[in-house]
Amino acid sequence: MLPWKRLISPLVAALVAACAVTATPAAASAATVTAVSSGTVSSGWNDYSCKPSAAHPRPVVLVHGTLGNSVDNWLALAPYLVKRGYCVFSLDYGQLPGVALFHGLGPIDKSAEQLAAFVDKVLAATGAGKADLVGHSQGGMMPRYYLRFLGGAAKVNALVGLAPSNHGTTLLGMTALLPYFPGAEDLLDEHTPALTDQVVGSPFLTKLNQGGDTVPGVKYTVIATRYDEVVTPYRSQFLDGSGVRNVLLQDLCPVDLSGHVAIGLLDRIAYHEVANALDPAHATPTDCLSALE
């Protein structure tokens, strides 16, 4: 094997491993596997008979992260929102042929098209005029393409991003090494285009952020943690523009140690901020005790 090829393999492995933490633990139960394959869940969400209430008139669409899926990414947040009276739905997107359970790997512009179709399906089923979107990691950034380029702004009231890769990631500097390894970028593009789409300065992100971070008429909330080890630096997650609220978890609870995975999968302090963003008229202060709610 040529020396540079020996170097590519560990680099690619490191990049994939770093992005893999957006997924939930690999030990999914048989019930979860069945739920993913059948497109249904039994924990109160993805119920297409659900009709939004006067208190919560918009359905909530959950958008998983890289290597996540419509069930595992939301085993805690979806029931949290259902319990609070929301109609909650989640989709799978960015599937690659022959790769089961681990999604969000395909070209992000194509994933945004899948989101557009799913939102239309949810709005048709619920009779609502608009939806709210909540996404983790790539799932907090990808909807912005839908809002800007695919007509989503007319169908979405709010976008809430948990550790979103809004301006890409350096993966703690590892991506800066790519130019020194001939063929590494092509290898990533061929097998996992969503990863290279999320590298700082990628053509996708350049197009997405050109002309401003936001579009008129949509409310944006970004919830970040200073301990994020994947979307780095963490302040790159924040958005500029009207209708934006940027939140750092440690400003609300200094002892919150959540990293990139936990903020999406189990952090109820972050979830309290999600609920506030979805219903700002009834928002309540978030602090460390919010973890007990």
Rank of each mutant, 00 (worst) to 15 (best):
residue 156 V to C: 03
residue 152 G to P: 07
residue 42 S to L: 07
residue 143 P to W: 03
residue 75 L to F: 00
residue 154 A to I: 04
residue 98 G to Q: 11
residue 88 V to I: 01
residue 123 L to Y: 06
residue 244 V to M: 10
residue 168 G to F: 03
residue 37 S to R: 14
residue 282 H to N: 15
residue 175 T to P: 08
residue 32 T to H: 07
residue 139 G to R: 03
residue 158 A to K: 07
residue 68 G to Q: 06
residue 34 T to K: 09
residue 139 G to H: 05
residue 101 L to T: 12
residue 248 L to F: 01
residue 83 K to S: 14
residue 232 T to D: 08
residue 169 T to F: 09
residue 222 V to F: 00
residue 40 T to H: 13
residue 16 V to R: 05
residue 252 L to H: 06
residue 286 T to L: 01
residue 115 L to N: 06
residue 158 A to I: 00
residue 99 V to S: 04
residue 77 L to T: 01
residue 27 A to I: 10
residue 73 N to E: 09
residue 55 A to H: 07
residue 218 V to L: 08
residue 240 D to N: 12
residue 292 L to F: 12
residue 87 C to H: 00
residue 59 P to S: 01
residue 290 S to G: 13
residue 286 T to D: 11
residue 273 E to M: 10
residue 274 V to R: 10
residue 214 T to C: 07
residue 186 D to W: 01
residue 27 A to R: 13
residue 118 F to I: 00
residue 266 L to F: 10
residue 180 Y to K: 12
residue 180 Y to T: 12
residue 90 S to W: 03
residue 220 Y to E: 14
residue 122 V to I: 02
residue 71 V to P: 02
residue 106 G to M: 03
residue 113 E to K: 11
residue 196 T to D: 13
residue 243 G to C: 07
residue 281 A to N: 14
residue 293 E to S: 11
residue 197 D to F: 05
residue 50 C to L: 01
residue 240 D to S: 14
residue 38 S to E: 13
residue 132 D to L: 02
residue 35 A to F: 00
residue 181 F to D: 01
residue 54 A to Y: 05
residue 75 L to S: 00
residue 161 G to M: 11
residue 260 H to K: 07
residue 113 E to L: 12
residue 11 L to W: 08
residue 79 P to A: 00
residue 192 T to G: 00
residue 191 H to S: 14
residue 279 D to V: 05
residue 17 A to S: 13
residue 197 D to I: 01
residue 6 R to W: 13
residue 9 S to H: 11
residue 145 Y to V: 02
residue 86 Y to F: 14
residue 31 A to M: 05
residue 59 P to C: 02
residue 50 C to G: 02
residue 9 S to K: 13
residue 266 L to P: 08
residue 21 V to C: 08
residue 271 Y to C: 10
residue 20 A to W: 14
residue 93 Y to R: 12
residue 53 S to C: 05
residue 260 H to R: 06
residue 58 R to G: 05
residue 180 Y to A: 12
residue 184 A to C: 07
residue 98 G to S: 10
residue 146 Y to K: 09
residue 209 N to K: 02
residue 125 A to Y: 04
residue 20 A to V: 03
residue 80 Y to D: 15
residue 287 D to Y: 01
residue 259 G to A: 08
residue 246 N to F: 04
residue 105 L to R: 15
residue 160 V to G: 06
residue 229 E to H: 02
residue 92 D to L: 00
residue 283 A to R: 06
residue 138 Q to Y: 02
residue 79 P to Y: 03
residue 95 Q to H: 10
residue 242 S to M: 05
residue 220 Y to I: 10
residue 65 G to D: 06
residue 133 L to R: 09
residue 279 D to R: 08
residue 90 S to L: 04
residue 100 A to K: 14
residue 259 G to Y: 04
residue 21 V to N: 13
residue 33 V to M: 14
residue 139 G to W: 05
residue 34 T to A: 13
residue 224 A to I: 03
residue 180 Y to S: 13
residue 140 G to Q: 06
residue 274 V to G: 09
residue 202 S to E: 12
residue 113 E to F: 00
residue 155 K to W: 06
residue 229 E to C: 03
residue 98 G to L: 11
residue 153 A to I: 05
